[in-house]
Amino acid sequence: MKVMTLNFLTCAVKNCKSSNDSFPLHPKEAELAKDDIEINPQLLINVLPRIDWAALRTTSTELGFPTLPEQPPSPEDLQSDEALLKELHELLMETQMMEGKLVCGHCGHEYAVKNGVANFLLPSHLV
């Protein structure tokens, strides 16, 4: 599961949807893998507008990646800042979470990640 996926996943428990604490989910005991993908600046520029930057900063820090700048870069920033471009490419496109857990900051429910697939099926008492 690409780390980018965490930017559009939230807790599956209905009552958590309205809480700010349910997003982003917090990786725990994460085992990461890295795909080798050719860097594509135009793709990153097009992906960036749909990224929740504050959530991505949180995810980046929690996975032990460098701290991202406070404000999202503009397309011009990205084109001129090769280091940041590389960092974002590695984090969003190349990094996969293979094993571990995703924890909801609101209800504390832990979703298991196995073989790169996160399981969001809820036990019957939470449905």
Partner: peptide, 24 residues
């Protein structure tokens, strides 16, 4: 042209759209 394909993120196990952020 080297890139005609989209970016696959991953399959997710879940019930319908329940793991996704609203409006995503």
């Amino acid at each position: 042209n080297p890139s005609t394909s989209g970016q696959w993120t991953s399959a997710i196990q879940g019930d319908l759209v329940s793991p996704l952020r609203p409006g995503s």
